[in-house]
Design a binder for these strands. Sequence first.
DNA 1: TATGAATGAGACTTCATTCAT
DNA 2: GATGAATGAAGTCTCATTCAT
Lengths: 208, 208, 208, 208
Amino acid sequence: MRRQPKQARSQERVSQILNAAEALFIEQGYEQTTTRAIATRAQVPVGSLYQFFPDKAAILKALADRYMQQEYELFASLHAAVPEPMPLANYVDRVVEAFDHFMTHQPGYRAVFEQVLGLMTAGAIAEMDTYEARIVDDLADFLGRLGPGLDAAQRRAIALVVVESVGNLLWLSLKADAPLRARLIAETKRLMTHYLASYFGKTIGKAG
Amino acid sequence: MRRQPKQARSQERVSQILNAAEALFIEQGYEQTTTRAIATRAQVPVGSLYQFFPDKAAILKALADRYMQQEYELFASLHAAVPEPMPLANYVDRVVEAFDHFMTHQPGYRAVFEQVLGLMTAGAIAEMDTYEARIVDDLADFLGRLGPGLDAAQRRAIALVVVESVGNLLWLSLKADAPLRARLIAETKRLMTHYLASYFGKTIGKAG
Amino acid sequence: MRRQPKQARSQERVSQILNAAEALFIEQGYEQTTTRAIATRAQVPVGSLYQFFPDKAAILKALADRYMQQEYELFASLHAAVPEPMPLANYVDRVVEAFDHFMTHQPGYRAVFEQVLGLMTAGAIAEMDTYEARIVDDLADFLGRLGPGLDAAQRRAIALVVVESVGNLLWLSLKADAPLRARLIAETKRLMTHYLASYFGKTIGKAG
Amino acid sequence: MRRQPKQARSQERVSQILNAAEALFIEQGYEQTTTRAIATRAQVPVGSLYQFFPDKAAILKALADRYMQQEYELFASLHAAVPEPMPLANYVDRVVEAFDHFMTHQPGYRAVFEQVLGLMTAGAIAEMDTYEARIVDDLADFLGRLGPGLDAAQRRAIALVVVESVGNLLWLSLKADAPLRARLIAETKRLMTHYLASYFGKTIGKAG
DNA sequence: TATGAATGAGACTTCATTCAT
DNA sequence: GATGAATGAAGTCTCATTCAT
């Protein structure tokens, strides 16, 4: 960001800009969305937009950062609340529903990331990947505590598969009609439960 | 397409255009690719390009169609060759490897479809979905013969989950380095095997 | 230039663009002149302008090149026609009047070069300087034949002084009213005559 | 100027702004220099800048005025110190060196004036010309005392040629490398000496 | 049918200037 | 008086598409 907004009014402006951009990126895609349209929707002049963001890509990046932080917080809170032992199916329910909640409330998440990956240079992506890696690592650590017999690379791959697959299927479910949506969520849970059970058994924690 | 090319030379031109477009869409993304760049790479004049395709989006659509057809043929050939009974794990191996082969040789597949979904209007997507549905339906039918107790919608959801998840993870693996790539493919197989086993048992076919 | 126009119509377009740019650069200055204004005055669409020139600076450079070539030709023709021996004052008359003719018919000359020097990077200027150097060198060579006792650097400095001073004073005269204009041209001749006489005597050539 | 600064602090601010503007105009040119950049370099807020100058052009004009005043003072002091009779060559040395000193220490002089001429309307330039005329007139008067046989217009033209040519060649020398620079200054002196000698003889003053 | 020069709407971004604090 | 965030007009340049040759 060009200028770090410290006053409440400015922070709200940045927020308005990001919300407007999110909505338009989902509706029309990143490329089809003009900075003028973002500014208009956010009810700020274009000039103000450029006071906070050096260019259009920076808005996309800021949006990605915002999602990352929110996703990370969701993960952390979910993780903190997991009692052990507990049935794996319950854990998966929680995870999937937490993801689903996130996707439902942050529908721009994947729209943004698909663009980010397709748009940014290797360097910029590497910087973003640090965030993504952090989230995957969190899950990998958690899994590590459930099944000590797995090496770090294996755990990370499993975490990656979980995050990617759940994310992908819920993204798909988001665009489906109600019946298919419900079914896809159920299938996502089933997919994850059987996959994780194959590694960690049907119960999570010491007693598992 | 604007004109159905019947002469060999024209067919080859269309093919060159699609190949050039595929390469550029992967390298730079759809929006960043200019029609002139496609024409130049395909070694045809822009005017000729517009003889076959009414606009830029039509090239994307034609590419999607081409992938669909190829994917369909791959599926069909895979399906025709499946003997019953056979261990589920073997079947999954075949499926995943067939997908992997497809992704490796048609790396533009997902690049194109991500664009297609993000670009087209509801109507145009519905038309494309007809193709996608056909492929998912094929798999759904196949699964239906394995586990008769499932209704059509359920089978379709399972097929969708399989196609989407395998596609997504292999797309991910495509961009990963060699060790992670191998691991992701292995995990994809494991994910699918345990998921499908939960529905159809560990052996496919009558004896299962 | 982006594209080398070979057809008569295109060449005329380039010429129209350069003429329009010249007029506007003189009237308003380089920065105040918009590419759209140039295109409008040249009666071509902006897009066409950008087919021949990659950017606005390229138009300035092309104009400079055009002047250079014309100036060079003027010098060459002037030089070829100088008989020896001849009175220095006659030679100076010819030189100054040739310069004056050039400035009068290429009034954009200095307007453009003042901009060029202030605008371009060292590299681009060096490239232009090659042209400027060529002209100064021509004169230096000519002077060398008149007074063999001068080394190359000295001759070049004298030529530079002549070209610069004559150019500058005639540029000044161009903006003056008629009486001052006539007087300035006369003074320019006197300035040059006495300066050159101090080096080469009052007669040019062997007999001098 | 918008407000005539009377307090010491304000006068210093104006001075800082002009110094910053001078540096930036030389480095980047007038158009490329933003008012914000001037304010930043001068370490004053933009708002304060606009308290003293109604717009960006006013800064350029103020700078031109400042140069004019300084140039005028230089001339006056030079003129006051000239004893008569004295060799013309000595006088020219003094003049050229005074000009050279001025150019070296006020390198923005010509950068500013080139912009001024290209930027301002006829009215604004006429106002500036009053200043320029005053300086040229000073020299014309001085020359008038040396050679009484010349009418006012002639003397003014000679003064103009001297001021312009010396200014132009020294401006050129400023941008040249050391050897060429030294040579150009020497040639400037020679040019002026022979020119003036043709009017006033080799000695200045009564004895001449 | 084949070509590629021509078109011009519209995108992103800058920056001189104002004015609420 | 001092400040600097806010403003939005305007500039440069791109590129999908057409159509005269």
